[in-house]
Simulated scan of single mutants.
Amino acid sequence: MLFDLGYVSFTEPFSAVLNQGMVLMDGSKMSKSKGNLVEFASELREHGADALRLTLAFAGPPEDDIDWADVSPTGSTKFLARAWRISGEITSPTDVEWKGGDAALRRATHHLLADAPGLLEAFKFNVVVARLMELVNQIRKTIDSGPGAADPAVREAIEAVTVLLSLFAPYTAEDMWERLGHPASVAFAGLRKPDPTLLVEESVTAIVQVDGKVRDRLEVSPTIAADELEALARASAAVARVVGDREIVNVIVRAPRVVNIATRS
């Protein structure tokens, strides 16, 4: 029907199939005879639908088997409560200008906005949930130890979290969206486009190895020249302690990420 109406270019109802894994218990398929059944209704009453959905999404790739003994609905419940509490702390108006907000938090938000569509298309739901957890932690730190709940970047970040969270925990996300001052429904909000200027790395971590072992990590510009990076590596106190009186016979620089120093006695 969809093909006949011109809505899709293929005749099959779907363009691809993803075979989901099974939910096991202690490594075995659940069955009454083994006595290893997990009653969905009781889990639903204890944790709620959102927490169970989030738990299954976070447990691993959907095509893999999941052992219920290894997952934590309680952890999902705590995370949802953490995100929900933040949505009630925001004091900035809904039309606040984002540009004046905390730069580090804005970069983290826009990296997630840039990465999430591709991850979702690839069914990497567990990665998206993990990234949401990381961003919520960063929001919490920005509120508690940084510019506070009134910072525009805090609102921008928790709104992005809410929109993405609606894919896994729609009831919680809907309530968060309302607490943030927006009309229903978050399902129609859509993800904002990432700002390309916020996706440029201001610094990268360069690994310095001496004879194959990591001896130091240097925060450097992503555009640093090879000779500059080599000079910084040679000047490192940690490298100097290891090298001591030994002769440096070779230095291989793969700027801006790695410096390999080889020595001999």
Rank of each mutant, 00 (worst) to 15 (best):
E134C: 12
A116V: 05
R131E: 15
A116D: 02
R131T: 12
L120M: 14
D144I: 15
V129C: 06
N126T: 06
E97R: 06
P93Y: 00
S145G: 08
D95Y: 06
P147S: 01
F123H: 09
A122F: 14
E134H: 11
A108V: 02
G101R: 07
E97H: 06
M133Q: 13
A114P: 11
E121P: 04
D95M: 10
S87V: 14
A103Q: 12
R131K: 15
S145K: 14
F125H: 06
V127I: 14
G146H: 08
A149E: 00
D102K: 01
S87R: 09
V96R: 04
T91Y: 00
R131A: 15
A150D: 07
D95Q: 08
E121Y: 03
N137T: 03
F123Y: 12
I143N: 11
G100D: 13
G146D: 09
K124P: 04
L132S: 05
L119D: 04
A149P: 09
G146K: 09
A114N: 11
L105D: 01
D95H: 11
N137Y: 05
I143G: 11
V129I: 12
S145V: 11
H111K: 02
A104G: 08
R106A: 15
S92Y: 01
I143S: 12
L120F: 09
K99T: 09
G118A: 10
T94P: 06
L119A: 05
H110Q: 02
D144P: 15
V96K: 00
I139W: 02
R107F: 02
T109M: 06
K99H: 02
L105G: 01
P147D: 00
M133G: 15
K141M: 08
A103R: 12
K141G: 07
P117F: 00
Q138G: 04
I86W: 02
P93L: 01
K141W: 00
P117T: 00
E121C: 01
L120H: 06
V129F: 01
S145L: 15
E97I: 10
F125A: 09
A116K: 02
H110K: 01
